[in-house]
């Protein structure tokens, strides 16, 4: 039976080292690749807020995970995504892949983060003190997701 993606959607802080340990060790693993997205310090930024949809966000992460597993023939995939309020330097998202070869492991990480940015229902708001500003996806975000989206249809 094909392994399933490990999806974690949480309001608690992410610990990348702890999350990597969730990847199952298999004899066939030849490469493990990871990506961690962090809250970037940006001028007077005091916090970053991630909102999500109570049902659709987890569904979208599951679809993205299962698509990546199949497309790249992965042995394991973990997607962990925060919601709520975070401070500079905190992880927002952590992705880890395991595959027999490096290319699949690396490409699967790129696929997952590129697609997740425009296909998973999250909304990002930067806070400077009491002033909030929504962050809209950029054209570059849409273009990077578009290069993979055939795999989602």
């Amino acid at each position: 039976m094909m392994p399933t993606a490990d999806i974690l959607l949480t309001g608690a802080p992410l610990d990348p080292a702890e999350l990597n340990a969730r990847l199952p060790a298999t004899a066939g693993t030849g490469a493990v690749s990871t990506f961690t997205g962090l809250v970037r310090g940006n001028g007077a930024l005091t916090a970053l807020e991630l909102q999500h949809h109570p049902v659709l966000t987890l569904s979208a992460l599951n679809v993205i995970g299962e698509t990546a597993m199949k497309r790249f023939d992965l042995l394991a995939l973990l997607i962990a995504h925060r919601f709520g309020r975070m401070t500079v330097g905190e992880p927002i998202v952590h992705i880890a892949t395991a595959a027999p070869h490096r290319r699949a492991a690396l490409d699967a990480v790129s696929f997952t983060i590129d697609v997740l940015k425009t296909q998973a229902p999250f909304w990002k708001r930067e806070w400077q003190g009491d002033t909030g500003k929504w962050i809209e996806p950029t054209e570059e975000d849409h273009e990077q997701a578009a290069q993979w989206l055939g795999a989602m249809q």
């Binding site: 949809h53 927002i92 998202v93 997740l116 296909q119 229902p121 909304w123 990002k124 809209e136 996806p137």
Partner: peptide, 28 residues
């Protein structure tokens, strides 16, 4: 009702159905 619509899908609405209007996504 928590099911994403696609442009080609036929819509059937009933009383008390929930329509979600979702801003462009910006996760990661």
């Amino acid at each position: 009702n928590d099911e994403l619509l696609t442009a080609d899908r036929k819509i059937t609405l009933a009383d008390s159905d929930r329509i979600a209007i979702l801003s462009p996504f910006s996760g990661g």
